[in-house]
Structures are given as structure tokens and as C-alpha cells.
Amino acid sequence: MNQPDPVFEAPWHAQVFALTVHLHERGLFTWPDWATGFGATLARHGLERELNGGDDYFNAWLETLETVLREAGKADAVQVEAVRAAWEEAYLSTPHGQPVRLAD
């Protein structure tokens, strides 16, 4: 039998999926509302070119989640960018093989 395809092509696909499912279960949004927003993002991204079901799909997913969180007042764009940059810095300054942690 053939080896089945991995469920998620990249670890971050799994992470953003799980984060969204968890936030939904905590009541931050309904699933039909999520599907409507996500569908709109996919449609917008898909105007320029045909999207694949991997990175393109999860990029649209992530953008939708960022929008939902921003509109709900849970994570604004400036804050997200600052923490993203802090993670980047943490990766670049951590010796290979060591666990990567955010500086306090």
C-alpha cells in the first residue's frame, strides 16, 4: 500500500488549523461565520491566480484568522508584527540545536 500523504504539508499549517479550531471551541466565532470569512479571502486571493491547496490555502486561512482576531480586539497588527519580529530574532540568535525561546 502507498504511504498516505501527510495530513498537513507543513507544521505551521497544523498550528494555524488547531489554533482556529480551538478559538472556535472557546466561542470566539461560529463556524459558519468563519467559513464565510475564509471563503471570501480565498475568493479574493484567487482572483489573481489559481490557488493550490497547500501554502496558498493556509496563507488565506492565516490572513482570515488575523483579521478575525484584529476585529475582535484580541491581537492588533502592530502587536502581531512586534511579536513576529521577536520570534525571528530569537531564531536567528539561538545556536542550532538549542530550544528557541522568546527573550523576556
Binding site: A10, L28, K74, V80, R84, Y91, T94, H96
Partner: peptide, 28 residues
């Protein structure tokens, strides 16, 4: 040779940022 830890792709860092922020706020 990666003298530093392998940098994840840009969207992965954005997901990590969301996780960090939401964890600190006790939302996840």
C-alpha cells in the same frame, strides 16, 4: 551549516506570534 536555529517560513512566525499573544492573554 546553520550556525543558528533554522528560521521557519514567514507565515509560521506569524502563527507563533498569534499563539504567544493569545497564550499571554489566557485566551488559548
Amino acid at each position: 551549516d546553520h550556525p543558528h536555529a533554522l528560521l521557519p517560513p514567514e507565515p509560521a512566525l506569524r502563527v507563533k506570534a498569534l499563539e504567544t499573544i493569545l497564550t499571554e492573554k489566557g485566551l488559548i
